[in-house]
Computed example of a mutant assay.
Amino acid sequence: MQHDLLNQLLKITDEEELILQNRREINKDIYTNQSNFIIESQKFLNQESMITVRKHTRFVDFPKHKHDYIEINYVYNGQYNQKVGNQRINLQQGELLFLNQHIEHETQACAEEDIIINFIILPHFFDFIFSFLTTENRISNFLINSLYNSTQNGQFLYFKVSEVESIQELIKKIIIEIMSPAFMSESTIKLYMGLLMVELIKHADKAEHTEDNPVQHYLIVESLKYIDEHFQSASLNELATKLSQPAYALSKEIKKATNYTFKELLQEKRLNKAKELLESTDMPIASVIDQVGYDNVSYFYRIFKNKYHQTPKQFREHLAKR
């Protein structure tokens, strides 16, 4: 299976064929509609997806650019040379590089045998991971800054894990699951990605990283876990009591770290859960509203429409027409 996948990935794409024939620079229109070079997730992700993979285009240098998503570079075969921020990194086969959406990097042209897999991931794909992350680790800091930090600090995590078999197997399973989706693939990918995060945390000694900005890890991660687990009835006062913090001080820390208030984070979680229930169940809309913790129907309709530009009924009707 892995040999077949390598042969598939070694094939020259249409974009690469044009580069080899007469074009010595990338076609930016493939990657962005913006004048500044920020690669856009919408170019590669459909509306229903939060994660995909794409083979990095070979034979041409990529100039300085950012992404509007979290990118993970994985060297499936060969090597990958790039400058991330001010640091030069030579990524070797089996190694991983996490880049948040705020860091600028540029890459050298890859040779034919250099197969780089780019994971394109919307930040909120990682929301679920806060339900099991430990409170003090580099990945939690990276994700908090990527998902919420309004200061737009560029960060990367470089994992030299080519010898860690459990990590290599998980990455290849994720790649195959995304490239050849089957029944329950979306759930399977999330589970594999969660396991990957756990394995990377266990091998944090093999990671290089940018200097972290101080974040109140314990307070923020525990707050996000609390919202994820208790969104139906969550309250700032109850959380503050659990964490032995004054409510006003905890509120200030949450706002400082995430750029959102506790109420805004809770509302986002409830709306996402309501959308999930509308998509995956036949539960009456009134029951969905109750299930996610709202008792004011008109208020729920207002905030749901403000976020998704449709009422819950219209949202469901639109799904039925697909």
Rank of each mutant, 00 (worst) to 15 (best):
S49I: 04
Q47K: 14
E25W: 04
K28Y: 08
E48R: 15
P63K: 03
L18E: 15
N27W: 05
I19P: 00
N22S: 14
I30L: 11
M50N: 14
T13P: 04
P63H: 06
E25D: 09
V53D: 01
Q47N: 12
N46S: 12
S49D: 14
S41M: 06
F59E: 00
T32L: 05
S49Y: 06
K43H: 10
N33S: 15
V53H: 07
E15Y: 11
N7H: 11
N36G: 03
D61Q: 06
Q8D: 13
D29W: 09
D14M: 05
V53A: 03
P63E: 02
E16N: 04
E48T: 14
K55C: 02
I38R: 11
P63I: 03
K28T: 09
K11R: 12
D14T: 11
Q47M: 08
Q34H: 15
M50F: 12
L9H: 09
Q8M: 12
S35C: 00
I12K: 07
N46R: 10
K64V: 03
S35F: 09
D29T: 13
Q42L: 11
L45P: 02
M50L: 15
S41K: 10
K11N: 13
N22Y: 13
L9I: 04
E16P: 02
F37L: 09
R58P: 01
D29A: 13
S49C: 05
K55D: 01
F44R: 03
S49R: 12
K55R: 12
D61I: 06
L10Y: 09
E15N: 11
L45S: 06
V60E: 00
I39M: 11
Q34R: 15
V53E: 01
T32P: 05
F59M: 07
N27E: 08
I30P: 04
E48C: 07
I26C: 03
I19A: 01
I51G: 03
T32Q: 07
Q21Y: 10
Q8G: 13
N7P: 01
N27A: 06
L20S: 05
Q42I: 12
R58C: 04
D14G: 07
L20R: 13
